[in-house]
């Protein structure tokens, strides 16, 4: 059964400019760029390290549930 919910990793698509920084530095390959915006392709693999939130220049991805 899935332990991750949509609330653990949140994307603000309107703010995403599709630079790909979060995709490149995600250690678990959770993210991808789809149609010019970030997309969560494998939420199950997310270890909630927060590297994406730390380096997103557009504040468009962050860990929730805190």
């Amino acid at each position: 059964m899935s332990t991750k919910t949509q609330a653990s990793l949140i994307v603000e698509k309107n703010w995403c400019k599709g630079c790909g920084i979060c995709v490149a530095f995600c250690p678990k390959n959770v993210l991808e760029i789809k149609d010019g915006k970030v997309n969560i392709k494998d939420l199950e693999s997310c270890i909630e390290c927060g590297q994406c939130e730390l380096r997103c220049p557009d504040f468009a991805i962050y860990l929730g549930g805190k």
């Binding site: 400019k17 920084i21 997103c56 220049p57 557009d58």
Partner: peptide, 17 residues
């Protein structure tokens, strides 16, 4: 005022945060 005016991939947002 967001999203900001900085270009895609500009590091300024990272420093600001």
């Amino acid at each position: 005022n967001l999203p900001h005016i900085w270009c895609p991939g500009c590091g300024n947002g990272i420093v600001t945060r």
